[in-house]
Design a protein around this nucleic acid. Structure first.
Length: 492
RNA sequence: GCACCGGUGGCGAAGCGGCUAACGCGCAGGUCUGCAAAACCUGUAUACGCGGGUUCAAUUCCCGCCCGGUGCUCCA
């Protein structure tokens, strides 16, 4: 099963296979750790997670490097405003970012690397560019990339810059650049700013150079895939190509994957629109991490995803349905044997599921055969026509679904608990939904006691009291499920 | 302004030259229940933005229009 993935560079679906025949080497642009991650960030990281999980599911080894940008203008500004060293500032947000990834079950890349840990590599790259005539230093000590030296510039973003000549007529002295479009490789230190003392001067790296340096350090001069959000196509990735290929004269990354921005309530998410949500915001509103994960991956990564609270509720219900069905299979008892129709249905579901994902990671299409199978299996169970071998076959399909989607396995309590803890520590308890607090207000033991009391009341046919308890629990988000001889409860 | 993407039933969302146009959510009825809830089943909706064109055939291709969104060196 070979993945056909859209390649921004070629403008078409290309097969994604390791060029060395062994492991797929990929680089994904990680976050700039200057604030808490928002759901737009996480859509991108989730899409990349779906990619790497699919590769692994279908037998491709993955070597995935992700960077953490831990020095840039915003970080310098914010750290200064907070009056702490930038290292302390970034460590806090990196930690938060990693916790959020874990909450969403985003798998860790094989390597996580930091910009500030690779200054020598960046300096060396700038020196090589200078030697090749592709970089120059301005009077203030900054280094720039000379776009004119790289005729292929624009090949990724399909921009034709030839008609956009500048410099000739405009006074660009304040930039001290040869051309207004030349971009910074190295920024000379301004008074009071963090700087590194290096052979190319005192300063700090430009944004683009870190990815070129680190990608080549760990993946080689040419590698299989480079991924990130769609906003990175230009200028970030275009600049990475220019910097890297000017030195190596080899294709930097063969395949480029870009994840579309999401919308919130039909608008671009922005703080000023009031539709800006971090993961923590949503957890504190009482939404489950698994529902957020499913909502964010169910729309194929190249399509615009319109994030809404209705959509989150829908995802919550869908997760519930998947889990209920899974539980039904695991806890039920089934006679030995198998039903040919169900065996065939399981096989079809598995095939269609993988086929959908292999077609540019069409997650929406991939869900359909799974739900088809659930319906067929439920019908069979109701008719007593599902047997042990069928259960095993269907569980195997669910396992392969969860190898990518990973929402059936329930690890929702921990992220919510941690978010509440964080809210308490950072004085944000006001942001917590009252229902969520209510839900946390009852211990398991207290619930068990109330459930026992209700069972007794029912036995005595005191239905008024029984219903009163049921309502009380419902208010605190505890749902009761009566069965013939027992009561199960779960927190909503 | 230039460029790109999209407009499919109540909502979300696949499909994209010819199959009953997936799937999820919602909704209705049924089974179950002291009654509910949950779960399951069944059903549900006369859905392909508008106007032309190409074709034996168009939701699917082409042109125009309307609407929404995004990008054009802050941004996942």
């Amino acid at each position: 099963m070979t993945l056909r993935l859209f390649n921004t560079l070629s403008g078409q679906l290309d097969e994604l296979v390791p060029m060395d025949g062994k492991a797929l080497r990929m680089y994904a642009c990680g976050p700039t750790v200057y604030d808490y991650g928002h759901i737009g960030n996480f859509r991108t990281f989730l899409a990349i997670d779906v990619l790497r999980r699919f590769l692994k599911l279908t037998g491709t080894e993955v070597r995935h490097v992700m960077n953490i940008t831990d020095v840039d203008d915003r970080i310098i500004q914010n750290a200064a405003a907070a009056g702490i060293p930038i290292g302390e500032y970034t460590a806090r947000f990196e930690q938060a970012f990693l916790e959020d990834l874990e909450a969403l079950k985003v798998q860790h890349p094989e390597q996580l690397v930091h910009a500030t840990g690779h200054i020598p590599q960046m300096v060396e790259l700038v020196q090589k560019l200078a030697a090749a005539g592709a970089a120059y230093q301005t009077e203030d000590g900054s280094w720039y990339f000379r776009l004119a030296s790289f005729p292929e510039y624009g090949k990724l973003s399909k921009k034709d810059l030839s008609g956009m000549e500048d410099g000739a007529r405009v006074d660009l002295d304040r930039y001290e650049k040869d051309s207004a479009r030349d971009f910074a490789l190295w920024k000379a230190a301004k008074p009071g700013e963090t700087f590194w003392d290096t052979p190319i001067g005192r300063g700090r790296p430009g944004w683009h150079i870190e990815c070129s340096a680190m990608a080549m350090e760990y993946l080689g001069e040419s590698f299989d895939l480079h991924a990130g959000g769609e906003d990175l196509i230009f200028p970030h990735h275009e600049n990475e190509i220019a910097q890297s290929e000017s030195v190596t004269h080899k294709p930097f990354a063969r395949h480029w994957m870009h994840v579309r921005f999401l919308l919130v309530d039909g608008r671009k998410m922005s703080k000023s629109e009031g539709n800006f949500y971090t993961l923590r915001d949503l957890l504190l509103k009482g939404y489950k991490a698994s529902a957020i994960r499913l909502a964010l991956i169910s729309v194929p990564y190249r399509h615009q995803l319109n994030f809404t609270f209705d959509g989150l509720i829908e995802a919550t219900n869908a997760v519930e349905r998947l889990r209920t069905f899974h539980q039904r299979l695991v806890s039920g008892s089934f006679a030995e044997g198998s039903d040919p129709a169900l065996q065939a249905a399981a096989k079809t579901a598995q095939t269609d599921y993988l086929a959908a994902l292999s077609n540019d990671l069409n997650t929406a299409e991939a869900r359909a055969p799974i739900f088809d199978l659930i319906r067929a299996a439920n019908t069979s169970i109701d008719q007593g026509q599902l047997f042990a071998a069928d259960r095993d076959a269907i569980l195997a399909v669910l396992a392969s679904f969860d190898a990518v989607f990973d929402v059936i396995a329930d690890r929702d309590a921990e992220p919510t608990r941690r978010a509440l803890e964080w809210a308490a520590q950072s004085g944000r308890l006001d942001d917590v939904a009252p229902e969520l607090l209510a839900r946390q207000s009852l211990t398991d033991e207290a619930i068990d006691a109330l459930v026992a009391e209700r069972t007794l009341a029912k036995k005595q046919r005191n239905f008024a009291r029984a219903d009163q308890i049921r309502n009380e629990l419902a208010e605190k988000g505890v749902v009761l499920e009566d069965s013939k001889d027992s009561v199960r409860w779960k927190r909503k």
